[in-house]
Computed example of a mutant assay.
Amino acid sequence: MTSIIKQYDKKTGKTYAVESTSRWDKERKTCICDRKVIGHFDPETGEILPNRKRKESTKQTAIAKSAGCSLLFDHAGEKTGLVSALKKVYPNHWEKLLTCAYYLLAEGNALSHCEQWTERNITPLNERFPAQRIFEMLPDFNRDTQMEFFQYWAHKIRENEYFALDITSISSYSSLIKTVKYGYNRDKENLEQVNLGMVVGIKTGIPVYFHTYPGSIHNVSTLQQNLTVFDWLAYKKLHLVMDRGFCSKTNVSDLYAHGLRFTIALS
């Protein structure tokens, strides 16, 4: 049973409307009365004026994030022109790419742990970046989009620059990577390896292009593949600096045939 009870408050001088609900409790065998103030009576009309609803707080809780990595990497990205290059080639993903790069540079850990790091640090994306979103993004970065970036990037920084080409090997225990093969191991490790070829600007120290090769391929035979790529990328007026691992009669002939300037150590 529900009824409205008048309750006068001397402090406020108002008569409040109290909703009283009675119910029988079978277990306790007694009548229980629940009361709730629903408003107060208007002294002129006698109508019940409902209570005002409390406004929910709109104040935002302060969040503290580390800015050290962002300040350093933002400056480096703007100074080298990397940010503008990524915006040009990857207009829909450049903030995500830079956020992943910041994390890898700062932590050197697997991208699956990036989410926790983005919660504590200021990043180009400036929001939490779950691993699932990273993995959904990765298929968009295939070899075609990489080559498009390499082409734009090299033309952006090549003025008054010359480049060094070298191959290094990275040992691996993986049995899932197809390019991991046995070959000449520079670290004298009895492990399979993958070869990483990279072109780097000598003056700036900025990487321009990279490619991975099976660990069984020697430096001397990778140059021919790189020259084909350089033609496709429209790299003109290159001056390559190479060690004796690239020295062979065939390679020297190919370098001349492609019209490239080069400095190479003789074997």
Rank of each mutant, 00 (worst) to 15 (best):
M198V: 15
L223N: 10
L240E: 02
K249G: 09
A257I: 07
S248V: 08
V194N: 06
D254W: 06
K237Q: 08
D231P: 00
V199R: 14
D231L: 05
I206L: 15
N251P: 07
G197R: 03
T228Q: 13
L238D: 01
I170L: 13
A154H: 12
V208T: 10
D254Q: 10
R244K: 12
G245I: 05
F246M: 08
H211L: 10
L240K: 00
T228Y: 02
P207K: 03
D243H: 03
V252A: 05
Q146N: 10
Q224E: 12
M242W: 04
Q224Y: 03
K203Y: 01
Y213P: 04
T222H: 03
Y184E: 00
P214A: 14
Y184K: 03
F150W: 14
L191Q: 14
Q151V: 02
L227A: 07
F210P: 02
G245M: 10
K181Y: 09
L240C: 01
K188C: 08
H211C: 11
I217H: 06
L255H: 00
S174Q: 04
H258N: 12
Y256H: 11
I170W: 00
T168W: 10
T212H: 13
K156Q: 14
I206W: 02
S221W: 00
L227C: 07
T222N: 04
R158C: 13
K181N: 13
E159N: 13
I157R: 14
P207C: 11
Y256P: 00
Y152K: 12
P207T: 06
G183Y: 02
S248Y: 04
N195F: 06
N219G: 09
T179M: 12
V180L: 07
K236E: 11
W232P: 00
H218T: 12
Y256M: 05
L191V: 01
E161N: 09
R143I: 14
I157S: 07
K156S: 15
K181G: 04
T204P: 01
L176S: 13
L196A: 12
T204H: 11
I157G: 04
C247M: 06
D254G: 01
L238I: 08
M147A: 11
K203C: 01
L165R: 03
V199W: 04
V241D: 05
V194Q: 12
L238G: 01
S175W: 07
C247V: 06
V208I: 14
G205F: 05
N226A: 07
